[in-house]
């Protein structure tokens, strides 16, 4: 087990450059360039066509709609320039929604990172029923978000819901308006349900990352007398870094696009205390038929997500690409 994973890791680095000469040889043959082009077209074409039709084109249309006042039917005639953007950015509901998104971004990482790590480290040890435990942790993630939300909505019903009934049976009264109906608790409740839902993904990714950590390093540390805690603190977690950073990235993008859970649990209420940017744009668009404003909000959401993604790539994930080349080089040298 130890030897095989080790070798696989070591072999990956030299095999990558080895692929190049083969391809070069083929493209050197007469008519090779055309053939390569056809091959590229064959493999990339369908995906590219779908991407253009279902991703690029809607983005262009959204940007176009955002410059008009439009009710969702009839021709685009009422050009208003950037008015929709200023309306959205001055709208308190939208700025609050943005804050809620940030709260979920930070809250998710802060809650799920330590919890996920703890569970992954526990499940990574040899214990009885390991497979069963892993499955249980992962089940919420497999559930459709809407279904999970409907279940939680019923659990969280004020007074008659399971959670309030259980609490009252031990003498604790739930909040008067219920967990989802009290403006001060609603967003926290959503965060808790989101954590329950997505913790499984964190654990799964962390477990996969743990499998990739070479055991010889761990063994070396153990021979030097490191305790289990010390091994985790100084070896496992630092080596899990790339996985943690990729997971945080996924979690962040998911939190920025938060919609289903909020839509089912609270619809953005009570008193707009749980709106997200996505619920804002859906409300403005399909509910109020202010498609121009909704489109402006969607463009802003797109830009926010893009900026987040680029900054994260630049500041955080870049380390990993460097790390990996360094690791690969070290592996090749050994």
């Amino acid at each position: 087990m130890t030897v095989s994973t080790d070798r696989a890791a070591g072999a990956a680095a030299p095999s990558a450059p080895a692929a190049h000469p083969g391809r070069r040889r083929r493209s050197g043959a007469p008519g090779g360039a055309l053939r390569t082009a056809l091959e590229v077209l064959f493999f990339v074409g369908p995906a590219l066509a779908l991407f253009l039709v279902f991703v690029v084109w809607p983005i262009i249309r959204a940007a176009q709609f955002s410059l008009y006042r439009w009710k969702g039917f009839g021709p685009l005639t009422d050009f208003v320039g950037l008015d929709n953007y200023s309306t959205v950015l001055h709208n308190e509901v939208f700025t609050d929604a943005f804050t809620h998104n940030l709260f979920i971004v930070v809250g998710s990482v802060l809650l799920q990172m330590p919890l996920g790590l703890a569970i992954a480290l526990l499940l990574n040890r040899r214990i009885r029923g390991q497979g069963l435990l892993r499955t249980i942790v992962f089940v919420p993630y497999v559930l459709a978000e809407v279904i999970a939300s409907v279940v939680w909505l019923q659990l969280l019903q004020p007074e008659y819901g399971v959670i309030d009934s259980l609490l009252s049976s031990v003498g604790i009264a739930g909040p008067e308006q219920g967990w989802l109906g009290t403006p001060d608790y609603a967003l926290w409740t959503v965060l808790v349900v989101l954590t329950w839902k997505y913790l499984g993904l964190a654990v799964l990714l962390f477990l996969a990352g743990l499998q990739g950590i070479p055991t010889d390093v761990v063994e070396a540390a153990q021979i030097d007398g490191a305790s289990w805690w010390q091994v985790q603190r100084w070896i496992t977690i630092p080596l899990l870094g790339p996985t943690l950073r990729v997971w945080a990235f996924l979690s962040m993008i998911g939190s920025l696009q938060l919609f289903d859970m909020v839509w089912v649990l609270t619809g953005g209420g009570p008193a707009n205390s749980t709106t997200s940017m996505a619920t804002f744009l859906v409300t403005e668009g399909t509910k109020r038929h202010n498609y121009g404003i909704a489109a402006a909000a969607s463009v802003i959401l797109f830009v926010v997500a893009l900026v987040f993604a680029l900054l994260y790539q630049l500041l955080v994930l870049r380390r990993d690409t460097h790390d990996r080349t360094r690791l690969a080089r070290a592996g090749g040298g050994a």
Partner: peptide, 14 residues
């Protein structure tokens, strides 16, 4: 009713 701020209009027993 208790929790009226999050009560839905006509879906389900609650």
């Amino acid at each position: 009713n208790k929790g009226f701020l999050s009560t839905e209009a006509q879906t389900g027993p609650t």
